[in-house]
Design a protein around this nucleic acid. Structure first.
Length: 224
DNA sequence: CACCAGGCAAGTA
DNA sequence: TACTTGCATGGT
């Protein structure tokens, strides 16, 4: 079985096991953007606290966020870690929207998909995963999001090498599927789900894993 | 105590 | 290009 077939079978198995995911956990597109930056190398639970602080401060809207003094913004997002760094990154993103799109996320999201990705990616502090998360989950465009879970699951099932480049991993999944935003959203969410429950960094719990039946002899590999 | 969590950029060679 | 380091909180 080639890797494209595997990727399609993984999706079918995950979808059967967990059902449709309706991800990203956020109420608005702006909240997706904020969460995408805050969750960089950080547990989502910590991000929830930070987002809770922003909402409690009435700052989960573009104007209020932009007006907030950088030090106050940093304090509010402190639970998410790297808080001084991330305050700057959030402001870099807000600055793009304010100065080039009249403070309107909708205007930014009017760009064609490729241009949108490049524009978001041009923000300092927004790398490929963060940009792709924004494009897929906030703008609803069919760009496949790659993250640590994607790599781990793909590696343990011999789809790619463990030091596989982001672009190659992304292309591997993209080329196996129809370019559909809902499908990409669902698939990425399912990979996070199975990653958290079964495909952990230091001990794959293959008992009960929806993908266990698709493992070949010798898999999974450890560590990572 | 060590290790992990939905990265990114800057510096070095 | 490839490798290293800083950034930081909260959970297990």
């Amino acid at each position: 079985m080639n890797s494209s077939e595997k990727i399609r079978q993984f999706y079918a198995a995950l979808h059967r096991a967990y059902g449709p995911q309706h991800w990203w956990p956020a109420e608005t597109p702006l909240e997706v953007c904020v969460g995408a930056i805050l969750t960089q190398n950080t547990n989502w639970k910590n991000v929830e606290r930070a987002i809770g602080n922003l909402k409690a401060a009435g700052a989960m809207n573009l104007e209020a966020l932009w007006r907030l003094p950088p030090e106050e913004l940093a304090e509010l997002i402190r639970p998410a870690g790297y808080y001084r760094l991330k305050a700057g990154r959030l402001r870099n993103f807000l600055e793009l929207v304010v100065t080039r799109f009249g403070g309107s996320l909708d205007r930014l999201f009017e760009l064609p998909t490729a241009a949108l990705r490049e524009t978001v990616l041009s923000v300092r502090g927004v790398g490929r995963e963060t940009a792709d998360s924004i494009v897929l989950y906030a703008a609803g465009r069919p760009i496949f999001v790659v993250d640590a879970y994607t790599l781990r699951v793909a590696f343990r099932h011999s789809l790619v090498d463990q030091d596989c480049d982001y672009d190659l991993l992304q292309e591997t999944f993209t080329s196996a599927l129809e370019a559909d935003a809902k499908t990409f959203q669902d698939y990425h969410a399912l990979l996070v789900q199975v990653g958290k429950s079964h495909c952990k960094k230091q001990s794959p719990e293959c008992d009960g894993c929806p993908l266990a039946a698709l493992l070949e002899p010798g898999e999974p590999r450890e560590p990572y």
